[in-house]
Design a protein around this nucleic acid. Structure first.
Lengths: 115, 115
DNA sequence: CGAATAGTGAACCATATGGTTCAGTATAGG
DNA sequence: CCTATACTGAACCATATGGTTCACTATTCG
């Protein structure tokens, strides 16, 4: 079964791992090589390379091979769409909550009528 | 290898699938049964139940068995921590960008001195 | 040149997703 | 009571994660 992953899928998926979130914060301090990242997160080069690949696919990180070193830096993705989704969801929750409140008020009003 | 998943892991993981995001938006319109959701997203009951289980583990959905129907509704999780993470990341990006600008300005100043 | 360093790729392993089918259980309703 | 409905659980399948080791390549540097 082929899986068509959207931008949101990739980004949220990339953020769903503590190591990858840590790598992003680390790269915020400055560019780093695979080795540096691997050492800091106590992992093999190969393991870290896979994480970087996931981040790269999501557009969160770009890499460039300089000599024998692969330099990793933060990519252009600012997670705007993801933030927008969360905002929309919060608005939805608020509306839903308001609707429930309305129902409660309605019930209370009827209750008052009965008395 | 035991995997200790954090709250952020679970939430971002739950959001990394279009069907699950759709289910959340759908539940924003009102509570729904597994059958209703399965039909709307053209999936078997079993498949939908698994998605709901993931959303439930993330605290985004709560369910209640009423007779033979399992009613799904939006849970208490407002994704505040996830939004905060995205905000922090954006701030990090801005700071990093500012730092790069500073470097560029510095280089330009030296260039001017040389001339 | 030769050795140490940095990365790469294949292979392997365990678990989680994202689905399915199929066989069962529980309940609503005539 | 009987049947249709709604869900549940086990089993299965393919792919993605999250790791590892090991063999290999490419580069730097003395």
């Amino acid at each position: 079964m082929v899986h068509y992953s959207s931008h949101l899928d990739d980004a949220f998926g990339a953020l769903s791992d503590a190591t990858r979130r840590g790598v992003l914060l680390q790269l915020g301090e400055g560019d780093a090589s695979i080795s540096t990242l691997a050492e800091r997160f106590r992992m093999t080069l190969t393991g870290m390379k896979k994480h970087v690949a996931v981040l790269e696919r999501a557009g969160l990180v770009t890499t460039e091979k300089v000599g024998r070193v692969r330099v990793c830096r933060l990519g252009p993705h600012r997670l705007d769409a993801e933030r927008a989704w969360l905002d929309g969801y919060r608005k939805l929750l608020d509306e839903r909550f308001d609707a429930l409140e309305e129902v409660v008020r309605e019930l209370e009003r009827k209750e008052d009528d009965r008395c």
